[in-house]
Write a protein that binds this DNA or RNA. Structure first.
Length: 423
RNA sequence: GGUGGGAUGGCAGAGUGGUUGAAUGCACCGGUCUUGAAAACCGGCAAGGUCGUAAGGCCUUCAGGGGUUCGAAUCCUCUUCCCACCGCCA
């Protein structure tokens, strides 16, 4: 959520920033609601001030044994008036809050201006795509031929976009999870957590999934709990409604969790393989940082995620999302895209973002500065990495002419020494 | 699921209708003392909103909602959460 006061005081700049990301927000409505709210507040607070003073006067009269009936009667009318105004304010505030929850974050000044993903900027790339002297196969064909990805049975157990991993496929998935967690905890200084996979609506509102993106979420209606679409949700909310001490910042967490997405708007898109699943695994990186450091921390976080791909030996590039392609809650985002031979292009395996105070304001996460001021913290997160897509990239990039796949060296110790996946 | 007990500031913990935004202790910050530290002593220490150029004023907040009252942390009511015991259970 944006700072109401900031919006009020920088209306035209906000209008411009929102336009740059292609968001249609009626800021005149904001001005109207905000103005009405403050108008009513001034009015009711004056009345309350009178009420408080008169209350004390009544108390004094009663203590002195003097009749206070007249004042009491006047107060009765005053209280009626206050109640009416309070109700009106609550109504206006509810509308205003609802409005603000639907306004996306403002892009950081360093974000390239653009309309959609075509305007994203390639920041850097690492490695080279493999040079095959044969026709490479897709990961779904490879996975099926090795009997490590069972798409048919995944559908039988649930529905489309669910996959059953078997044998070395399941082991490779697990090896990737462990490899990534080990890297981030032992070498990058993240604290490993394993959070609840079901969370309450407060968490979803805190990180920005609700109220706007409810149709993307799986919900357990009987309990009003949601399956998380990313570990970002529970991990960021760890410190909801807390005031953190400045000297523990930046706080860095990593978590492996399954993730669940309804992919409501993606019918017919990427239906083959494991690229777009309703359930997938992910290792997530989450940071809480002081505002003046958050952009440095974003660079570091992105590098931490890149390191995974480098150690696996997968060619990738780093993309800076343009204003028009930015996610709802983000101020700035880098995507890591790995080379995927079957698509003859790059596929996103990580999205690293700085949310500045957008989530912190929603989730009420603050910190105390050295001079004891309380301020909203900056939150960041990034995938480190999406497991399923990484597995797919390994199958495709490390396949050989004889139909087998070489397991990256860093994973072998996590797989009982296995070196090859083959028939 | 059943019964009972709870929810107060960063933490602990008083407070059952009228200077209680909230005692006291701890923690924290500043000072005195000390070669330094500790102890002791003195002082400070909630957040949010709103008006104001500012100084500062005012309002709100004792889990959350609703109610009683001139006035609610205190009374009533519903909800949520926590704890204990019972039942069930990986």
């Amino acid at each position: 959520m944006l700072d109401v006061r900031f919006v009020r005081q920088n209306l035209e700049a906000v209008r411009e920033a929102l336009r740059s990301r292609g968001a249609e927000v009626d800021l005149d409505r904001f001005t109207q609601l905000d103005g009405r709210r403050r108008e009513l507040l001034v009015e009711v607070e004056q009345l309350k001030s009178v009420r408080n003073r008169t209350s004390e006067e009544i108390a004094e009269l009663k203590r002195a044994g003097v009749d206070a009936r007249e004042k009491v009667l006047a107060m009765r009318r005053l209280s009626e008036e206050i109640k009416k105004l309070d109700g009106e304010i609550a109504g206006v505030e509810a509308v205003l809050t609802d409005f603000m929850l639907g306004v996306p974050n403002l892009p950081h000044q360093s974000v390239p201006f653009g309309r959609d993903e075509k305007d994203n900027a390639v920041v850097r790339s690492w490695g080279d795509p493999p040079a095959f002297e044969f026709e490479p196969k897709s990961h779904w064909d490879l996975g099926t031929s090795f009997d490590i990805l069972d798409f048919k049975r995944g559908v039988k157990l649930a529905e489309s976009r669910f996959t059953l991993l078997k044998g070395l496929g399941a082991q490779l998935e697990r090896a990737l999870i462990n490899f990534m967690l080990d890297l981030h905890t032992r070498e990058h200084g993240y604290v490993e957590v394993f959070p609840p996979i079901l969370v309450n609506p407060g968490c979803m509102t805190g990180t920005g999934q609700l109220p706007k993106f409810a149709e993307e979420l799986y919900r357990c209606a009987d309990d009003d709990l949601y399956l998380i679409p990313t570990a970002e949700v529970p991990v960021t909310n760890i410190h909801r409604d807390e005031i953190l001490d400045e000297d523990i910042l930046p706080l860095k967490y990593t978590a492996y969790t399954p993730c669940f997405r309804r992919e409501a708007g993606a019918a017919g898109k990427e239906t083959r393989g494991v690229i777009r699943q309703h359930q997938f695994n992910k290792v997530e990186l989450v940071k809480f940082a002081r505002p003046e450091e958050s952009y440095d921390e974003l660079e570091k976080l992105t590098h931490d995620a890149e390191e995974v791909l480098q150690r696996l030996g997968l060619h990738y590039r780093v993309i800076a999302l343009c204003t028009g392609d930015l996610g709802f809650s983000a101020s700035k985002t880098y995507d890591l895209e790995v080379w995927m031979p079957s698509y003859n292009t790059y596929k996103e395996v990580s999205s690293c973002s700085n949310f500045e105070s957008f989530q912190a304001r929603r989730a009420n996460i603050r910190y105390r500065t050295e001079n004891k001021k309380v301020r909203f913290i900056h939150t960041l997160n990034g995938s480190g990495l999406a497991i399923g897509r990484t597995l797919a990239a390994i199958l495709e990039n490390f396949q050989r002419e004889d139909g087998s796949v070489v397991i990256p060296e860093v994973l072998r110790s996590h797989m009982g020494g296995a070196e090859i996946i083959g028939k």
